[in-house]
Design a protein around this nucleic acid. Sequence first.
DNA 1: ACGGGTGCCCAAAGCGCTTTGGGTGTGCGG
DNA 2: CCGCACACCCAAAGCGCTTTGGGCACCCGT
Lengths: 343, 343
Amino acid sequence: MRLKDLSAELGLSPTTVSRALNGYPDVSEDTRLRVVEAARRHNYRPDARARGLAMGRARSIGHVIPTATRHEMVNPVFADFIAGAGETYARAGYDMVLSVVGDDDEARLYRDLAATRKVDGIIVHGPRTADPRVALLRELGLPFVVHGRVSEETGPYSWLDVNNRRAFYRATEFLLDLGHRRIALVNGLEYMDFALRRRMGYLGALSDRQIEADPALMSSEEMTEPYGYRAARQMLALDRRPTAFLTASLITALGVRRAVEERGLVLGRDVSIVTHDDELSYFSAPDTVPVFTATRSSVREAGRLAAEMLLDLVEAPGGPPRHRLLEAVLTVGQSTGPAPDRD
Amino acid sequence: MRLKDLSAELGLSPTTVSRALNGYPDVSEDTRLRVVEAARRHNYRPDARARGLAMGRARSIGHVIPTATRHEMVNPVFADFIAGAGETYARAGYDMVLSVVGDDDEARLYRDLAATRKVDGIIVHGPRTADPRVALLRELGLPFVVHGRVSEETGPYSWLDVNNRRAFYRATEFLLDLGHRRIALVNGLEYMDFALRRRMGYLGALSDRQIEADPALMSSEEMTEPYGYRAARQMLALDRRPTAFLTASLITALGVRRAVEERGLVLGRDVSIVTHDDELSYFSAPDTVPVFTATRSSVREAGRLAAEMLLDLVEAPGGPPRHRLLEAVLTVGQSTGPAPDRD
DNA sequence: ACGGGTGCCCAAAGCGCTTTGGGTGTGCGG
DNA sequence: CCGCACACCCAAAGCGCTTTGGGCACCCGT
């Protein structure tokens, strides 16, 4: 059932049917009702491609998920972020088109999305400290919002980010207040912008208390569980082992915990852990004392908000870039306690 | 730069340019080269909507991710499945359009996707034991592949599934061979088809050895970490507590392990765990002895294959439905050992 | 009685592509 | 020299919608 069929059946012109359905005022209330009713009855929806062609807009947003070519891992936060963004799109009548691509031919993909006009805007995931995508998208003239920031980018662009620096500054401070002095940082890959900022927060807090950072207590890698385990195991074997860990994700924290327990140490007594927690749905239970002390920030909510920003940008083009900085909250769980005396 | 501009610049008709780019034989090799070169230089790609409209195909596949309305969790396996499917689409030049939707108005969404012709086919995620979506999609005439199966569906449909029944049968057998008799099942929601099949495998193995299943040792819920913890904690407090657990996901297994350790029991000695493992990228390290004994099956690979099946279906319509059953492999890790004597 | 609103409706153009169904010019056999 | 292939190329139609720019009645005021 297409527009032509529907209008034929109603004895109206396609023009009138189209205008009736799109709420133009120059259609009598009577006929509008007839049209709407008939459309409903036949389950008529305009063909999205034809509509988009005629109106010049795709009503869809692109998400490009880079899979690091080396260890083709897909970051689990994407799932929740996209779920959040999806809610926004559903509400606004947009579609989400997802591309999974090795980061080597990401540029080609962006050019493609622009040239084929498949999307009205793009969400940029996983920004690096220096990220060519910002300049590229600017050149292509495609509206975009970065989830995170690009430290070395000087030009204007829209972004939504968590205050990672402050979150890790406060987490470090929290551990210092508990008497910890040897605090390890089990960080994500530090060419990722968020990881760099977290490191800066950590270093800032240490230096504000005149504590020297120990390179042996800092590591940086892709945030898997085995990585947390390996890093912690190694650090715990040091002569002057850390009494506390700062980890970049819950998943990594699980690895750290495994190493701690394997060594016969007790979490929250012998060793403390503070982790960043993106509030992934499958790790949190509604009303329980959280296991891990954490800097929390819902990545799903971030997805919702980033999508809203982008839709604003798409629907009111030419405006100034938008920014939004979310604060993480520090929630105390069972994984932290005062530094043990014996040191 | 559109087709018209390009053809004007070349002094050719749009027809010829189009045919040159699409590899028709009635274009001289000379002009084809000129055209291709000019297209490359101007970074020309045909508008996807116009192309789709003219050709009647969208070159994109829909994935509908249901978020259980109650506890709006998004299953982490989706991320990896979609990453896998995305690889296939990228290779074949298809797009993936993703919709996140509460399961109450899922039907409307399917009708919409069909009526607006936004996609050429659909992957159905998270099938229930009785799932109305199969009948609906059949009625809509949209090609589809179910990731999993629908036990109560009698009509034909295409699917790709893991042999969950056999996987859990073997896992149970494995534990029985180790001398375990009180084996708990910490299952997913049992209106989900995969969970029901796993339960049948578990029960089948028990009854084949004349062991009576104990309802106190079976639970069923959404597969979160806290759920695993809660269920295990409760079961371990029983008079005749289980000596082994079968869990439905690595994440749940982590919760079980937490409960085990909290009770001062040692994994692999006092209590064994076998879990199903979807090989999510952020839990596995290349060359390490796996922590958990598990029935493994890569959900990413499943995504790749399901997408291939669907593309076949889309490109050669009218064929018979396709099926594919993947076997999980049982890999032995450190979480299992002989049943303790003291019982 | 006549000009000008006003309320409804529609034909046709256009969005950017593909495809159908020729058209033109050259080379060849008869 | 004519007719026929053959190799290239193109005008125009069509995909299904929206939007522009009227057209036609009808009514109201003068």
